[in-house]
């Protein structure tokens, strides 16, 4: 589904992505984790070209997304993206947030878009808030609406950039449950997150990044039980116990 070939990206002198090569198969659920500044958010944002790369290739469904004849907007409408800061459109109701894209991009009729959106909002558990404005919703509800907004377009691929990092702890669970539900229905998901419990339970594979490199890649079992790199071990140790051993 997604293929990275020797991808590099620089911010000035800083190497954000270093010779990244990886393949993500159809229906796979991949979690990307790592310390701050490791390049994980940058990597996921290159998939729909919210970030541009300096060298290398990225293929989505076999198509080179940087080819000159690529229709970027068309590509993006078939990839769902969920932001850390939700980025709902504050001047539109929840329902309108979700029907905007189907109506204006797919030419769907308003009534049909409305029904489709309500069904998806029902699925994520916020259908009763359809007519409210985003500012009237809690963080967890807003993020679920953001997921619904992306889902309405029925994308084969969904990307999550730290979807729960901006949420109060008690709302993290409701969002993770929605994402887990998507995973169980066979969607291709790539999720950048710090939620290791979620990774262990839901991911097919975990990628660990540090300083722009993918250091570790493996099934959750391999990752948690037998990490190869010292850096990975240190990361896992820091997560498990916040206080450094004396």
């Amino acid at each position: 589904m997604i293929e990275f070939r020797q991808v590099n990206k620089y911010y000035g002198d800083l190497r954000a992505l270093a010779d990244v090569s990886e393949t993500i198969a159809h229906g796979e659920v991949v979690v990307i984790c790592g310390p701050s500044g490791s390049g994980k958010s940058t990597l996921i944002r290159t998939i729909n070209r919210l970030e541009e790369i300096d060298s290398g290739q990225i293929l989505v469904d076999g198509i080179d997304i940087h080819a000159p004849d690529v229709r970027l907007d068309r590509l993006r409408s078939s990839i769902g993206f969920v932001f850390q800061q939700f980025n709902l459109f504050p001047h539109l109701s929840v329902l309108r947030n979700c029907t905007l894209a189907p109506i204006h991009l797919r030419g769907m009729r308003a009534a049909e878009a409305r029904d489709r959106a309500l069904a998806v909002l029902e699925r994520v558990g916020v259908a009763d808030k359809a007519n409210a404005l985003p500012s009237q919703l809690s963080g967890g509800q807003q993020q679920r609406v953001a997921i619904a907004r992306a889902l309405v377009m029925e994308p084969p691929l969904m990307l999550f950039d730290e979807p729960t990092s901006a949420l109060d702890p008690e709302m993290v669970g409701e969002v993770l449950r929605v994402i887990r539900d998507l995973a169980h229905h066979g969607m291709t998901l790539v999720c950048v997150t710090h939620e290791m419990g979620f990774a262990r339970e839901v991911a097919d594979r975990i990628l660990f990044m540090d300083q722009g490199f993918i250091l570790e890649r493996g099934s959750p079992r391999e990752f948690f039980v037998n990490p190869q790199h010292a850096r990975t071990r240190r990361f896992l140790a820091d997560i498990r116990s916040p206080f450094p051993s004396d």
Binding site: H104, A146, R149
Partner: peptide, 20 residues
């Protein structure tokens, strides 16, 4: 973030300006 969210949905530059 508003611009990014709209572009990520697939809205064109013009549509993003107009609606968002």
């Amino acid at each position: 973030g508003q611009m990014e969210a709209a572009r990520a949905l697939g809205l064109s530059h013009a549509k993003t300006l107009r609606w968002i």
